[in-house]
Nucleic acid binder design. Structure first.
Lengths: 205, 205
DNA sequence: ATCTTAACGGAACTTCTGTCCCATTAGGGG
DNA sequence: CCCCTAATGGGACAGAAGTTCCGTTAAGAT
């Protein structure tokens, strides 16, 4: 079997191809907002984007593929991370940035869709990991700075602290499905901070 | 329009109907383990359960409906919660119980499916809330006991502490999709405990 | 034991999903 | 500027998903 070549649209990614991709990804997000991942239909996306459905099937294959590509697109837009001078300020900023993301109608719908897709599609799971992996690394620097300043115990696992800030917000979003509020975000940041100060994120513990 | 009556199978829930439900829910879980929520097909479930597909469509309507009913079934099986004598012991027990649940092939696949379904189906979302609401309440008693004993500050939000133990584990399961290990569970319990001891779950904070 | 009817199941049917083929359009190298 | 071909798009098609109709089975009341 001949080595299956790269995806369609990668050899000649000029004007038309790029326009098609943009139109399709926008249409995908619109559909996600209106119908959710479960209601995402390739035909519908093609119609909405004004492109042939053959093209959508050929380039993205499945709804999961669409959603994974959408996430990859979002991952490229770098998230500006704060440097407020204190861990507390930085962690609050982080929590609020997560809040803003999951609260935004388009982004929120997209995240939920990717997470749903990732439960049974490896491509979507990969896109999800890539997105959060990068984001967590960026914000982890704030924790490392805090350790340097002596605000947090040496050996503190910076990435884990950042994940601990996000986790309760995603728990609310996905599991308990309560509204993710600014108060919840604040509390989440402060709780992670309290645990970090107590050394619960340090190596030995 | 005549008030649409109650669901099929609720007026005469005797032997046959109960058997059909059991067979269908078992088949649903089997399919979830093998194919995931995305691959759950009503026809396939009907065939596997050995019942008519008409019956499955009539009683459950959609894959989300199947999964929601499955979750309701699981919610009825009460989860024994521990009383080890210390908060630390109880929170660890809680974390390990979550670990066990999400690690179990059948339960884990079911949880992921319900969470995926809940992102765009209100019925599934409701079943999910009911399941975790009850579970959290049960385990929250352990935190209340700890407050009574003076192990944790007065005014500690017991349910929030319990949610804080679970959150990082679900974050791993759903978002970062790293394996949920016993170490992760232990740490999660200890971090929630550290924050609670520091008063980060108390009223004012 | 008998009767009523809730619930089930088979089969035909419609709609939607996904594939294939081939003509058309336009990127980008020469 | 022209040519080659990557990429698109329409239309026809096969198969799966979902609906409807109606006859059959058995729960539960009398």
């Amino acid at each position: 079997m001949e080595q299956e070549s790269r995806l369609a649209g990668t050899v000649r990614p000029g004007g038309r191809t790029a326009k098609v991709r943009a139109a399709v990804l926008t249409a995908t997000q619109d559909e996600l907002v209106e119908r959710g991942f479960h209601g995402l239909s390739m035909d519908q996306v093609a119609a909405r984007a004004g492109v042939g459905k053959t093209t959508v099937y050929r380039r993205w294959g499945t709804p999961s593929g669409l959603v994974a590509d959408l996430m990859n697109e979002l991952a490229d837009e770098s998230s500006p991370h704060a440097d407020t001078g204190t861990v507390e300020g930085d962690l609050r900023a982080n929590a609020l940035s997560v809040l803003q993301a999951v609260t935004d109608p388009r982004l929120g719908a997209t995240f939920q869709a990717v997470i749903a897709a990732a439960t049974c599609d490896e491509e979507a799971a990969k896109a999800l990991r890539a997105f959060y992996g990068r984001r967590v690394e960026e914000w982890a620097k704030a924790v490392d700075r805090a350790v340097g300043r002596g605000e947090l115990p040496p050996g503190t696992d910076a990435k884990e602290v950042i994940r601990a800030v996000s986790a309760p917000l995603y728990y609310r979003l996905l599991v308990t499905r309560e509204p993710v509020t600014a108060e919840a975000a604040e509390r989440s940041a402060l709780r992670a901070l309290a645990a970090a100060r107590a050394g619960a994120f340090a190596e030995g513990a």
